[in-house]
Amino acid sequence: MHETITNRANPMIDPALHIWGWEIPVYLFLGGLAAGLMILSAMLARRDGAPLSRWARRLPFAAPALLSLGMLALFLDLEHPAHVFRFYLAFRPASPMSWGAWILVAIYPASLLYGLALLTDEEWAPAARAAGPFEKFRAFAVAKTGALAWINAVLGIALGAYTGVLLGNLGARAAWNSPVLAPLFLVSGFSTGAALAMLLPLSPSEKHLLRRWDLAAIGVEAALLGLFLVGLSTGGAATREAAALFLGGAFTAPFFVFVVIAGLGVPFVLEAVEWRKKLAPTLFAPALLLAGGLALRWVLVAAGQA
């Protein structure tokens, strides 16, 4: 006798979960980077003392550029790219995807205006002749520099947290079912943003500040990772199973080796020694941090779908 199950294993009833490939981790990583850079450029501008160095002034432009790259990756992942516009036909306060879509839209004008505001008059001069109506935008931006810095910082925090909320909101994936993901991705984005900035020829005092912030961020990130694992392993059966993936299971080596040791531990030691012994900065630490940030998202996205 054959028993036919009509109510399960039916894509209309049990939604088949879409498997995410490389696009999503890359999008989350670039989004985090953009968020980190937005917060950092605001923080650097608000500090007292010397004026911003040449590259620090251009930092705000990095955010929309990185975000666009990330959106391109996201776009590749979508099944119906042509339907993206629907996100913008409505705002659903309960949907993080809707929030995210609107945050993304807000970031472009905010960061571009802030970038214009930070440019010196000499830097703006060659563009001014061709700019025409943009001259008005810049005048507006320069007048509101302080407010724009705050807006950028807030939008950066929103974007960084949103990349975590996006995953944490999917209850069907046990490994993502953690409230820690939002602050974790935010801090990781901040840290990778600082790492990327450290690769640029900033002034020594700016690099010094970045390193201090980054060291703190790595510490917080390590604590959040600990909380994440503790939270998973003290939850229900499904989340405990998800925790086991990182504590002896299939993702243990990638997680601890690429994220914890190579992505956090080693760069922390390198930066701490750099700071203490006043050594010339090395590119290894930022490079490892960036790779570690990508690995974190990669491992989490892969483990959540295991």
Partner: peptide, 20 residues
């Protein structure tokens, strides 16, 4: 993985000794 560790250990040792 051990060789990956060798690389990381080498970086930390060389850098902290001022030889990187």
């Amino acid at each position: 993985f051990e060789v990956l560790g060798v690389f990381l250990g080498g970086v930390v040792a060389a850098y902290t000794a001022g030889r990187l």
